[in-house]
């Protein structure tokens, strides 16, 4: 093993011995001075996860979160120095951690935290003007394809994901009731917002994201839930500036 290979392995595993050849500057071995680096690495990566997954942290409590973060950062240290991206596999890691299996909603909560962070750093895009949408003749609406803002993130869940998020961030918010909720993260300005999608809205948005026509997307929504209200979905998209391009068939 090279010097940095040994160093790295010992940094991430406190059970390993301090590498040979490290001194304390006073003629002795480095001893617990090596722990400064161990501690720096663990603290820096834990803090990145804490700020990146605030809702998961709130649900688990600070101490339990640090425990899970410690397992994750040792198994999955960042693959890039761009720390705003760190934790992309944390939701899947949570899902695969047996000790957390009793909290089935937690991976989706982590996905939503991640989606909010990704939305924050996503590219800027100008929404299309309301007049542009209003000018499309009704008969042509079915065939249009919509370009969605780069900041949009869809998180579909069989848990009351929106209510859980709200309950943990909004004082006085109602306790989540058991139901499935799809959440759309929008970014009207610079601040991402978790929006509850109306029933069927998740299927419709997934279809739009796949590049299908508005007609096909609305059909997908109705197919998923008979109560699907296309107007409510389109109002939400228009209100939060989610539509950045419209392509008509002609």
């Amino acid at each position: 093993m090279t010097g940095q290979e040994t160093f790295r392995a010992a940094l991430l595993d406190p059970a390993q011995a301090v590498p040979d050849g490290l001194l304390d500057g006073h003629g002795g071995p480095a001893g617990r001075r090596f722990a400064v680096y161990r501690n720096n690495v663990a603290v820096a990566l834990t803090e990145a996860l804490e700020s990146g997954f605030p809702t998961v942290r709130k649900l688990l409590g600070p101490q339990n979160f640090r425990g899970v973060a410690g397992l994750y950062l040792r198994a999955h240290p960042p693959a890039s120095p761009v720390m705003m991206l760190y934790g992309g596999t944390f939701p899947a890691f949570i899902a695969g951690t047996p000790q957390l299996a009793h909290r089935g909603y937690l991976p989706d909560v982590a996905r939503l935290d991640l989606a909010l962070r990704e939305a924050y750093h996503a590219a800027d895009a100008q929404p299309v003007a309301p007049e542009v949408l209003a000018a499309i003749p009704a008969r042509a609406l079915e065939g249009i394809r919509i370009t969605l803002a780069p900041a949009l993130r869809l998180v579909r869940s069989r848990w009351p994901l929106h209510a859980i998020h709200r309950f943990n961030h909004e004082p006085g918010a109602p306790k989540p009731a058991p139901r499935a909720e799809d959440v759309l993260v929008t970014r009207p300005g610079f601040d991402p917002l978790p929006r509850l999608l109306p029933p069927g809205g998740g299927a419709a948005l997934a279809a739009l994201g796949d590049g299908r026509t508005l007609g096909a997307a609305l059909e997908a929504g109705a197919a998923e839930d008979p109560a699907f209200d296309p107007a409510a979905l389109l109002r939400l998209l228009a209100q939060d500036g989610c539509i950045t391009g419209v392509e008509t068939q002609e």
């Binding site: 010097g3 940095q4 290979e5 160093f7 790295r8 940094l11 991430l12 680096y37 720096n40 690495v41 820096a44 990566l45 990145a48 240290p77 960042p78 693959a79 890039s80 120095p81 720390m83």
Partner: peptide, 17 residues
């Protein structure tokens, strides 16, 4: 300093001989 080894970024400024 170094901070990446074998594709793992350790988010600290680590020392060199």
């Amino acid at each position: 300093a170094w901070s990446t080894h074998d594709s793992a970024f350790l988010n600290d400024l680590l020392p060199l001989p």
